[in-house]
Each structure stands twice: as structure tokens, then as C-alpha cells.
Design a protein around this nucleic acid. Sequence first.
RNA 1: UGGGGAAUGGUGUAACGGUAGCACGGCUGACUCUGGAUCAGCUAGUCGGGGUUCGAAUCCCUGUUCCCCAGCCA
Length: 576
Amino acid sequence: MTTAPNNQTGNPAENNKPSLDFIRTIVAQDCESNKWGQPIVTRFPPEPNGYLHIGHAKAFGIDFAVAQEFGGHCNLRFDDTNPCKEEEEFVHAIKDDIAWMGWKWKNLCFASDYFQQMYEYAVELIEKGLAYVDDQSPEDIRQGRGTLTAPGTNSPYRDRPVEENLDLFHRMRNGEFPDGSRVLRAKIDMAHPNLNMRDPVMYRILHATHHRSGDKWCIYPMYDWAHGLEDSIENVTHSLCSLEFENHRPLYDWFIDAINKDRPQPIHHPQQIEFARFNLTYTVMSKRKLRQLVEEGHVNGWDDPRMPTLCGMRRRGFTPQAIRDFLDRVGVAKFVGTSDYALLEHCVRTHLNKVAPRIMGVLNPLKVVITNYPEGQTEQLDAVNNPEDPAAGTRPVPFSRELYIEQDDFMEDPPKKFFRLAPGREVRLRYAYFITCTEVVKDDEGNITELRCTYDPETKGGNAPDGRKVKATLHWVSAQHALNAQVNIYNHLFTNEDPEKVEEGQDFLSNINPDSLEIQLNCKIEPSIAQAAPGTHYQLERLGYFCIDLESNPDRIILNRTVNLKDTYAKQQTKQ
RNA sequence: UGGGGAAUGGUGUAACGGUAGCACGGCUGACUCUGGAUCAGCUAGUCGGGGUUCGAAUCCCUGUUCCCCAGCCA
């Protein structure tokens, strides 16, 4: 109420206050009213059972950013309540990915550290008659839950005396019963229209070794019981999560209220706010499907550059700045939509355009001999490292009599809109000379094997003293100086922007793009990158942004294409 | 015949009773030693039907469509 409303009719200069998304609007109000009497606290609660993808990055980006913007803090908490699925390895990978994205957590937490506290809360509920031990089989429990339209039925064990429940629960904990033989359930309402409220299971027996607590426990809390308590214990004020937990919120509220009933010191009651999870065109985001892609060999592992995993995107050459910019632009809402991959591409190009050094490299080499250039001569030409950043300086690029240019940059019989090299035509070699094609050399089958050209020594550096213009500038490399390289050209993993859109009886795999990876083994790159470290970003002039692959080394240089450059010529071609 | 959510250009997102705006995409053109970048312009939207109001994306009624929920997963 005290904040000035956004005046629509006022001076535009005064209207630049960015509008807040619905979550930040709530948090801002809460801060304004000092609702919590403490700085706000958020958390990102991954289960350490897999790799993070860009959908997670959206979620934890909100968690961290909201805390930061409103002067609070965000915890990283591993939701490790299922020892059968979780591994230490993922804890490290998740921490790395979050740090790579540039976020810092305040406290590193583990749900498993709260097992004792949760157990004590459970005992309190039993004592209040709000939880009971159920001896039914999993199948019986499922049957008793009813359906979406039919109410459930009470368990025959539902009205066990408190003392018996207490005794049984202790003995569950002590390991007296086998897995699956008994559970602890909340006593709520088996006819509740919300299935989550039909006496949900709180604890199951699992004689499994936990990656952190070892064999200390043989009963483990269910997510629904544990999650709200974890937030409570950490004093989380705003528990931000995805839409599918909206149905669970009444249960979390019920648990906290149940614990606080008749309790002298009530425990903290967080506020959960749900937002739509993130979808991206041309990819899948579910853990199950990503796992399937990896396990069935459709991609080469979790960090395959075609994967939407953060490790995959990192390997592909996406930068955290670009990903964050993208996620910011996508925004936060409750509408379940699908963001456009083209926007992601726009964001990487924008970032890399500013920071990536330019180099020249040829993917499909076509040999060019400059017939009037002295044999054996080499000269170093000055090339600008980044026209967007004068401070990046220049570098020398070797020029000699034999060069490579891109096969696509020559046509023997070009259409009118083709500006590049053709017989008799003059073009510029970037930072070098104007050359004119004088002869096309072919093999017996008529394939073009070599071009013979002349150069104009007066055009050194790329400008003609007489002021004459050329329509095209080509990238090139000196044959004798070029580095051999493998270049991986990545395209969309799926041919359909919605991989789930399939013919009857098919699944998303039928939409896999057979050309999602084109490996080019015969590439020629200028020598300046000989010692470049894996992960280094470049723009190959006129081709796109690339990054040195993880497995690249000076003896075997491998580049991954992050994204191509916008190419209006190519676009015109595909339109025809 | 259950409950919970959501619908604004092709896509994502603003506007919170007062001129439907921004970004990406698409399409023009300018400029250019990257057919890149940059710059300028154009394109295109309130799910349908009723109401309330001087005025509705916004409030009310009604219909439609889509998403989530029946793990001892998270």
C-alpha cells in the first residue's frame, strides 16, 4: 500500500520500474509487512539421484535470486530420504552445476540430518492419535485408497490404541520387522477428495544403507512427511516449488498444524508457493526420458552436448550468463508453456558475440592455390580478435600460397543471389587480399578438387587502394599452417519442437533427429588455438560459436558447435 | 459422477477497472572487411457466450480447452 503504483500515464522515464512476477510480488508484500519477523529464507531441495538440467536451473535460479533480491538467503538442501536411489556422486555434480551457474548457497543441508527430529515429531503425532501403524500390504493400501472418484476405506488397523502404535513404531525403527511389512500413516480422512489426504504413508521400512547415515536407520520418511519439516527446521519462509505440489500443500499444512496442536513451542510454518515448471522446445526434460536417452545410447552420456543437462550445455558451450539471461527473459508464472529454443540461441549469441575471440577455420576444405604468390613465402597478417571488444587486440594469422576455403563459398555456376567466389569473380579473403578465381581443377569424376586464383598485392589487409568493392569476404586458413581438427556440429535432438507429439503407438524416440550430430573430421583451423584449454569459447568467423571439447588436446583438437551464426543467406535458401 | 490449477500475437511474458506493452521469432530496408553484429520499420493477441460499468484482459455468470493427482518415488 505504501509503494507507489505504476503510473501508466506518467512520464515513461518514471515508469521503468520492472514489474514483479507473482512470486516476487508476494515476497515483496511479506517483506513490506514484516510477516515473518526475520529475513526471508528459500531453499533448493534436489534429490541426489541424477544430473541437473536447465529446468532445475530455472527453479534454483528463482530460489537463489529471490533470496538475494529481498535480503535473505537460500540453502542448498539435499532431499536424501530414499537410500535406494541416491548416491554421493550426484551430490558433488549438483553442487558443481549450481556453482557453475554462479549461485552461492548459505547453508549446505541434508534431509538425512533431520531424521531424528522427524522421528520425534512422528512420535508426537502418534501420541496425539494422529498417526497409526498399518500392517496392510502395499497392495491393500493401494486398494483402500479408493480412486479419483470413489472414496477410500479405512484400514482395519486405523483405530489401534496409541500405546500399541508407539510400541510398533519403536520396533519398526529397531529393525524388528522386514521391509514392506508395516508403515506409519497419518490419520486424516480416507474419503478426502484430495487423494494426498487419504491417510498418507509417513514412514516405510527400508533395510538399506544410506549414503550419509549408513545403517543408523531402517525406517525412512516419505517425501510428503519430510519435506515440509525440512523447510520448517531451516526456517524457510517461502518454499518455492513446481505446480504438481499444489495438491500436496494442504497435507504439508496439516502436518505442521498437527505437530503444533497442543504444543507449547509451535514449530515454524513455511509458506509454499508453486510455479510452472520449465519446458523447452526440441527437447525433453523428464528425468526418466533423459535417462532413457543415455541408457539406450541415443546420446553419448549425461553430458552429451545435445542434452539439456547443465553438464551437457556446458560442454556444448553455453555460458551460465547466457542461460541466466534466457531464464530471466522466460520469467515466472503459473502457466505451463514451452519456451522457445530460439530465444536460448539468441541469448548465447548475444553473450558470446561480446566475449568470444574470433578465429578462422574451415569445416569442409577446398584447396586454393594463389598462382601469383611466391612459392615458399609466408607472411603474418593482422586479424582483429573481437570487433565488439577493442581491448581484445589483434593476432597474427599466417598467409601463404596454398590455402583452404569453405567448399560452400565457391560455386562454379552460381545463382544470382550468391555473392561468394565463382570463376572470374573477385572476393576478399578476410584480413588478407582480394583474390580472383582463374581456374577450376577437377578430378576424373568431375569433382572440384582445387581452385587456382590470383591475388592483388595492392589489397593487403583487405582494402583496395582504388576503392573498388567486392561483394563477399571469405574465411580461410593457410594450408601449411593449419591445425587439423574434428568439429562436432550439433543440431536439435528432436525433429519436432514437441518431442511428445507422435503418431499413434509411437513414443518420443520416433522424433529423434538422425542428424543431431554431424562429425566433421577433416577441418582446418588457424594455428592460434593450438594450446587452447577445453571449454574455451570461440567464434569461427561466418560459421558460429564453438567451444573446445572436454576431451580435446593439442594432439587431437575437438570443437563443439554451440550455435551457428544467424545466416540470412542460408535462410533464403531454405525458403526456396 | 472427485479434487486442485491454468488460459493474452507463432513463442514466452506485462498491464491488477482507464491508449493491450516488451522480448524472441517472422518480414522489409539501412549499414557492414563476418550474408555476423548494429540500426530503423512492419507483422501478429485478450479461449467462447452472456452480463455489471461511461469504460472490462481485469469484476460477475456460464461454457470450452489444457495440465496435475489413485508410489511403501521425489
